[in-house]
Nucleic acid binder design. Structure first.
Lengths: 127, 127
DNA sequence: TATAAATATGAATAATTGTTCAAGTGTTAA
DNA sequence: TTAACACTTGAACAATTATTCATATTTATA
C-alpha cells in the first residue's frame, strides 16, 4: 500500500471537517477492522458456507463432506484448513477418520443476519 | 467447475449415509448459499468494512471517505460501487457532492456478531 | 463559455485465492 | 510387512479482485 497524506483533499472536507474528525475518533482500531474483514472473507466462499452449514446440522468426516458437496477430498481438506485457522471448526480423530464440527455458536446468527439482508433486498444472483 | 459424481466415495459414506442424506435434505438451495457467500464477500475487505463503519456513524461524501481512510477518491468510488450493488449503501446528490449512507440496518448486527467471534477466540492478526 | 470541483469509469497491473494434481502422512487390516 | 484407506500438504494454474492511472461526466462558478 502506498503512502498518501495530503492528496485528494477537496474543498468539501473543510465544510465536513468536524464530521470526519468525529468519525475518525470513534473508528475501531485498524487491527480490529482488519480482523473483522478477515473473518468475513472466510464466510465469503460458497464451499465454506456449505461446509459450515452442513456441520451445523451434523458432525461429519472429510469424506462425507466431499460426497455431500460433490467435490474432491483435497478441495474440502484445503477449505477445512482455512476454517480451522479461523477457529470456526474443530475436529476429533477416531482411527483414520477425522470428524469435524462447528467451533462457534455464533455462525448461525451471522448467517441469519445475512439471509435477512438478502431476503429484504430481494438480492438476485448474478446482478 | 468440473463434473464429478461417484469419485472419492469412500467406505465411511456407507456408515454415514443416513447422516449425509439427512443433511442434504435440510440444506438451503444452491442459490441461497451462493447469495450468502456473495454478501459476505462484500464484507471481506478492509476498505469496505471501514467505509461501512464510517457510514454507520455519519452520512459522508466520497471525498470525506477518501480523506478519512487516506485513499484515493477513485479507490473509494470503486468500492462504493460494490457496496451499492450489494444494496448496502444508498446515496443522495446535492449539487456536485454525492452523500452516501447505509441502506441496511442489519450491518451493525452482522459486524457485532463477527466481533464477538474475534474477541472470544482471541483471533490474532497474521496467524 | 471556459474552468474547476466532485465523482465515476475503463483498462492495466499486481496480488490473492480456489481447485486440481501428485505425493505425502498416519492408521487399520490382511 | 504390505496394502488399502482417510486425510493432509505443496506446487501449479486459472480466475478473481483491489488499487492505480488516465480519462470521462456532471455541476457550480468565474
Amino acid at each position: 500500500m502506498k503512502e498518501r497524506d495530503e492528496l485528494d483533499r477537496c474543498d468539501c472536507n473543510v465544510i465536513h471537517e468536524d464530521v470526519v474528525n468525529a468519525v475518525r475518533e470513534k473508528m475501531p482500531s485498524e487491527e480490529n477492522l482488519y480482523d473483522l474483514a478477515e473473518l468475513f472473507k472466510v464466510f465469503g466462499d460458497t464451499t465454506r458456507v456449505k461446509i459450515l452449514w452442513a456441520l451445523d446440522e451434523a458432525e461429519m468426516c472429510v469424506c462425507d463432506l466431499a460426497v455431500l458437496l460433490n467435490m474432491t477430498q483435497s478441495a474440502i481438506s484445503h477449505q477445512l484448513r482455512v476454517l480451522k485457522q479461523a477457529r470456526l471448526v474443530k475436529y476429533r480423530k477416531e482411527g483414520k477418520i477425522v470428524y469435524y464440527s462447528l467451533d462457534d455458536e455464533h455462525i448461525k446468527n451471522i448467517f441469519d443476519q445475512g439471509l435477512i439482508h438478502i431476503n429484504e433486498k430481494h438480492w438476485k444472483r448474478g446482478v
